[in-house]
Design a protein around this nucleic acid. Structure first.
Length: 822
DNA sequence: CGGTTTTTCGTTTTT
DNA sequence: CGAAAAACCG
């Protein structure tokens, strides 16, 4: 049990089981004191689960007695925060100004700081994207390069300038007594290196160290491991080089490849039996990752049956892909309502379309990540106030809320104060105080600032007495933030209020757990998207990265196209391409029984523009053909096929109805406006947008209708609860024999792009009644004469799209003061 | 100053 | 299409 241990655990080989059993074994059979075992996991959620599982393995079960024997389980970041908050005092010796009540700068805070610096240096995003600058700074930090190093190494003026930004970024953090995510690790390493006594203390405290997902640790995490296990060397690491997917974040694959060199007496254990997936899935995933050159190479095996072939669906476009996924899930869940399904994608924005499709079927789903709770503007505002109460030096938080809600401290005033703060090299807060005491601003501004300073001081005193919940309540009320939201009657404001109420609930719970304000804020900064995964949820939408460590009976992988997955940003480097491939391996091996891969022949890059032709992902071709079942109908789409476009339009409109903003510019309407302005319709009548849209280039975009038998088969299966609109979706032929192997290599011939946007043939839709119907000329008091292009709905609630001289306007019949002209 | 409207611009992945 | 910056107006 003692000594270094390397466990090379393939996907689905039950490594969590191995770790938990090992810990329990140590505690039960070797009488190791539980808390002296530190297990490091990748997410907080994984940590919580691991703790649970170990406790359940202890003899007394989950009784309160065994809780005292619980091991320490946490992420590296949480561990470091606790270390620094508890024992961080001596860090001040090497990081002047550091105190243990430091703030944590999350992604948004970092971004705000960089923007601030850019502004001060007279730069903008044309120089370099903020995020790009941040990621380069992070890279430098993680490779222990100082700004000076960067400057010396710079071969181009951009890098030289970046060194200056980097320097100021670090200065900004120090001035605010803030640590960013990198610092949490880096400064912990520095602290333990610097403070020998503390290091020895921790070496005694931790007798066994275990690290999960070791392939994704970075350099500072590696150093931390070395520092913490200095004397006893009882380190067990678990990882799989084929699942290393965080290279871009500094994960160093050498950590795992060189473990045996670092610890020559290490025991190595290989877990190569997969207990999760069917043989088909395992073989397919293994075949894909086998294309990587940089790997030790291993071949997983399983006792499981072959199972169903991998389903591949070639959609006509993104929307069709989404509908295919939703429809397939719908039939699966109709038959087996408890099946858990995951939809995985490369980039977060892909979720939107899939969500729309699922909503159309009324299937509840859960999206992981994207825009998390703690990133919402209102939540961040509230937390910024809270941070400011703890750390007055926190410039980023201060700037965030100084004029939210508006209190008369505008840009001009702030510019002056910022300039003065920079000149004297003091924190913004101090500069504000000086502005008041030295009167170098106008009277109005000074009064506003004085009132603000007083407010924060008062809130701060209250917070000290009352705890998090009281502090938050005080903030929301006394700053006028709550009132501001209440006065805003928009639906967004309602959801904001809801979010803040949720935050208050979280605060109340924190108080019950006896947490301080600082601990509450730490939690807010360190929760990850993956922590919010609800494994009980039936349908989950998440990125492949967030799916790490999870498993689902049914998995869809969407958007398997060159440029999307593998992502275009990985194109130029072989190493990055291999990481994409590992990501594909991770994604595929999440599936237990059924795996679907889909791609779209055309996809629009942004909301507006034309759909652009795509190429299938190289990973699709790397899946052995004999494991694949193509789910497309055999027949090519034809012109007379039922047009899904109009249906899709409906879907969109339904989804949009709630967020109706009063102005919509979609291309069909633009085209109609084009005609309306020229007033030159072929038919001689005013061209009218018929309620049913004519598809653009039907040959290219109309999805295939399934063969009649497929539909019939489906009806037989008792699925008449499917909305009629979707009966015509392409259906995977059930029980159909595998398609004959396609003979020629290019299974997915590249297509020509759809023709340039063409004006829809003005469908001479018959005019129904006279009056407020499309085509009518109307007068509006403010906008003058216009042409009614489109009408949605009937009666006084009808939504009208009207082309005025000034442009397109959408209005509701009963509110718009319109007169119809003959 | 502060709110609203228009323009621009662009999407990896995240502790 | 949607977010963020820029421009605009009361």
């Amino acid at each position: 049990m003692e000594g270094p241990l390397l466990i090379l655990a393939g996907a689905g080989s039950g490594k969590t089981r191995v770790i938990t059993h090992r810990i329990a074994h140590l505690i039960v059979n070797h009488r190791v004191y539980g808390p002296s075992v530190l297990a490091v996991t990748f997410t907080n959620k994984a940590a919580g689960e691991m703790k649970e599982r170990v406790l359940s393995l202890l003899p007394e079960g989950s009784g309160p007695g065994s809780a005292a024997l619980a091991p320490t389980v946490s992420t590296f970041h949480s561990f470091c925060v606790r270390l620094l908050r508890r024992d961080g005092d001596s860090l001040a010796e090497i990081r002047p100004g550091f105190t243990r009540n430091f703030t944590i700068y999350d992604d948004d805070d970092q971004l705000a700081l960089v923007k601030q610096i850019f502004k001060r240096l007279g730069l903008d995003e044309k120089f370099m994207q903020y995020r790009a600058a941040l990621s380069r700074i992070s890279h430098a930090k993680n490779h222990q390069e100082t700004p000076q190093d960067l400057h010396n190494l710079a071969t181009d003026p951009k890098t030289a300038r970046l060194a200056v930004i980097y320097e100021q970024y670090e200065a900004g953090l120090r001035q605010a007594n803030a640590l960013d995510f990198d610092d949490l690790l880096l400064e912990s390493v520095r602290l333990l290196t610097h403070d020998e006594e503390l290091r020895h203390l921790w070496n005694r405290r931790i007798q066994f160290l275990m690290i999960d997902e070791y392939q994704d640790t970075n350099r500072s995490q590696y150093q931390l491991m070395r520092l913490l296990s200095d004397t006893h060397k009882n380190v067990a690491v678990v990882g799989d080089e084929d699942q290393s997917i965080y290279g871009w974040r500094g994960a160093d694959i050498r950590n795992i490849l060189d473990f045996e060199r670092d610890y020559p007496d290490a025991t190595v254990i290989r877990l190569e039996q997969n207990y999760r997936s069917t043989k088909n899935i395992l073989e397919a995933a293994s075949a894909v990752v086998a294309n990587n050159k940089e790997r030790k190479g291993k071949w997983l095996w399983t006792d499981a049956a072959s199972g169903t072939p991998i389903g591949i669906y070639e959609a006509i476009d993104g929307e069709n892909e989404a509908l295919f996924i939703a429809d397939t899930i719908n039939s699966i869940l109709t038959r087996q309502p408890d099946t858990r399904v995951a939809i995985l994608y490369r980039t977060n924005f892909q979720s939107r379309q899939i969500e729309e499709a699922l909503r159309r079927y009324g299937r509840p789903y859960k999206v992981v990540g994207g825009f998390s709770f703690y990133q919402r503007a209102e939540v961040k505002d509230a937390l910024a106030y809270l941070k400011l109460l703890t750390t007055r030096r926190d410039n980023v938080s201060l700037l965030r809320i100084i004029n939210t809600p508006a209190r008369g401290i505008g840009r001009t005033t702030l510019d002056q104060v910022e300039a003065e703060a920079a000149r004297r090299n003091i924190a913004l807060w101090d500069a504000l105080e000086l502005a008041v005491s030295e009167h170098w601003l106008g009277g109005r501004a000074e009064a506003a600032i004085a009132a603000f300073l007083r407010l924060i001081e008062e809130l701060s005193q209250e917070a000290e007495r009352g705890g998090v919940e009281a502090a938050l309540k005080g903030i929301l009320e006394r700053t006028g933030y709550w009132r501001m939201l209440q006065q805003d009657t928009s639906p967004e404001s309602e959801s904001r209020q809801g979010n803040l109420e949720e935050l208050l609930t979280a605060a109340a719970e924190a108080v019950e757990r006896g947490e301080t304000i600082a601990e509450f804020l730490d939690h807010a900064a360190l929760v990850s998207d993956a922590d919010t995964v609800d494994e009980g949820a039936t349908i989950g939408l998440l990125t492949m990265h967030n799916a790490k460590g999870l498993e689902f009976p049914v998995v869809f992988i969407a958007g398997m196209e060159e440029g999307l997955f593998p992502h275009s940003r990985s194109r130029d480097s072989e190493a990055q391409m291999e990481e994409e491939r590992r990501l594909c391996y991770v994604a595929m091996t999440r599936a237990e029984r059924r795996l679907y891969l889909s791609w779209a022949r055309y996809r629009r890059r942004f909301g507006g523009g034309q759909p652009e032709p795509t190429l299938p992902s190289r990973f699709l071709k790397e899946v052995p053909r004999h494991l694949v079942e193509k789910l497309n109908p055999e027949r090519e789409p034809r012109l007379g096929d039922i047009d899904l476009h109009s249906e899709r339009h409906e879907v969109r409109e339904t989804a949009r109805r709630n967020t109706y903003t009063g102005r919509t510019y979609n291309s069909i309407e633009h085209i109609n406006q084009f005609f309306a302005e020229r007033n030159a319709p072929a038919s001689g009548k005013t061209p009218i947008a018929s309620p049913v849209m004519t598809p653009v280039t039907p040959q290219a975009l109309t999805p295939a209708a399934p063969p009649a038998q497929a539909v019939a088969r489906r009806e037989e299966a008792g699925q008449s609860d499917v909305p009629p609109l979707f009966r015509d979706l392409p259906q995977p032929p059930r029980n159909a024999p595998s398609p004959p192997p396609t003979p020629s290599a290019p299974a997915y011939p590249a297509r020509k792009p759809p023709n340039a946007p063409l004006p829809p043939p003005p469908s001479a839709s018959p005019r129904r009644r006279r009056g407020l119907e499309p085509g009518a000329t109307v007068m509006h008091a403010k906008y003058g004469r216009g042409t009614l292009l489109r009408k949605e709905g009937d009666g006084e609630d009808a939504k009208l799209t009207i082309s005025f001289k000034t442009g397109l306007k959408k209005m509701v019949a009963k509110y718009a003061d319109l007169t119809v002209e003959e």
